[in-house]
Amino acid sequence: MREIAYEDIVKAVKNMVIHTATNLPDDALKKLKEAHEKEKSPVAKKVLEQLLENAKIAKDEKRPLCQDTGLAVYFVKVGQDVKITGGLLKNAINEGTEQGYIEGYLRASTCDCFSRENLKDKIGYNLPAVIHIDLVEGDKIEIEYAAKGGGSENVSRARVLAPAQGRQGVIDFVKDVISEAGPNPCPPIIVGVGIGGTFEKAAISSKHALFREAGKPHPDPDVAEFEKELLFELNKLGIGAMGMGGTETVLAVHVEKNPCHIASLPVSVNVQCHSSRHSHITL
């Protein structure tokens, strides 16, 4: 058994949270630059220019890229030969999250669903984090993190289609969701699509798809082809940067596909704004 100390997890998570809020990762930056080059609308091009300038200011002056510093979402792979000493993994991640959000001058955005009361004093500063844990082979802990903003979550949708609707049904559904979303999720966006599994499996897959390096095709060539087709279809919508009209609406489409029940075809669309703040660490 390899031992990893609770405190080391707290510290690593804290540093990752602070860094991610001000540093747009290379993959997202590259995609934004490509969109800026390709964009045909002068209005949208100007918006993309602002976004690139914003990324530079954020990095140079350590200012959060966006005031919506998100809910903290984690996908964690724990090697089954790891023993965590000094506390529970979930607590360590939450503690690191809280420390990072406080020390990085980030916003506390968690609240009660009905009273809308901010939970910073009741549960913790921007807590609880959303944590998905998987047990895997090995003696390491891999933590993938995203600061997920509210605007793009608000337009995300899941539906269980009839099997007869098939591939085309999925394309139509994704297109409807993005068309209806229009300017609201801060385009240009990255679209995560989870297909198959059960209702919640599709939703979690669509979220996890957003953690992939932007634009990196799915290893299965058929799925990669489907991603390309969706990207082409979605960019026909003409929404453009911040919805002001343009050719570059979607930076990348990432699909995760799972086997499903003979009676169902679940599909979920999770949208990521242009400020795709994600990181990952291995301990």
Binding site: Q50, R63, P183, M244
Partner: peptide, 13 residues
């Protein structure tokens, strides 16, 4: 008016 969403660092300045 629309301001550029996600340009919080630039607009805050």
């Amino acid at each position: 008016f629309g301001a550029t969403g996600g340009a919080g660092a630039l607009l805050g300045k």
